[in-house]
């Protein structure tokens, strides 16, 4: 389904629209939230909040300004970071970088996910460590290029292209062309 077709359905805001939205994005959003919050129950709570925000603000999404996924990704990241701040877990993004999404796979103990997780872990471990860090900061944590370059001590001018190479690697691994 293309984004346009999806949006036509979702704008109806009925029961089907919700199921569709949930099926397509809940797990990805949950992955993004969990990567920041690190607690399953609290992440579910934030996920609920995120869905409410998406639902309420659907009309303000403007597809001339970006992808729908990007829009909900931003909502999820911001809600997670707000949650962390309000609980004063951390006061700055700096503390967010302690570990990354690969770490989750090590600690993901849910039974039905396990086979998948093992398979995925093998895949993801094929990524260079630098790529794991870069994708973690830019995609999962929403760091700016400047922040990522400081954090990883790489020249600012190379962040964009290094990230592109990493995403290409990921696409090869996942076979997304």
């Amino acid at each position: 389904m293309t984004q346009e077709e999806l949006l036509v359905q979702i704008y109806k805001k009925d029961s089907n629209a919700f199921t569709l939205l949930y099926d397509m994005y809940s797990k990805s959003l949950y992955g993004i939230i969990f990567n920041l919050i690190k607690d399953k129950e609290e992440s579910e709570d934030v996920l609920q909040e995120v869905f409410v925000k998406i639902w309420k603000n659907l009309d303000s999404y403007n597809d001339g300004k970006g992808r729908f996924f990007t829009w909900i990704l931003n909502i999820a990241r911001n809600a997670s970071i707000d949650r962390l701040r309000s609980k004063s877990h951390n006061n700055s993004k700096k503390n967010l970088s302690a570990d990354n999404f690969v770490h989750i796979l090590d600690h993901n103990t849910s039974v039905t996910n396990k086979i998948d997780a093992i398979g995925i872990k093998e895949f993801i471990n094929k990524l260079k460590p630098k790529c794991i860090k870069l994708i973690d900061l830019l995609f999962f944590k929403g760091y700016t290029q400047q922040e990522a370059s400081e954090e990883l001590e790489i020249p600012l001018g190379t962040v964009k292209t290094q990230n592109r190479n990493c995403i290409n690697e990921l696409r090869n691994i996942l076979q997304v062309q």
């Binding site: 809940s26 797990k27 949950y30 996920l47 994708i135």
Partner: peptide, 21 residues
């Protein structure tokens, strides 16, 4: 394609969502 790759990536690291959710 880029979007697909990162949607898949975040999907695959997600813990199981409880059914009640």
């Amino acid at each position: 394609a880029i979007e697909k790759a990162v949607v898949n990536l975040s999907y695959s690291i997600s813990p199981n969502l409880s059914a009640e959710n």
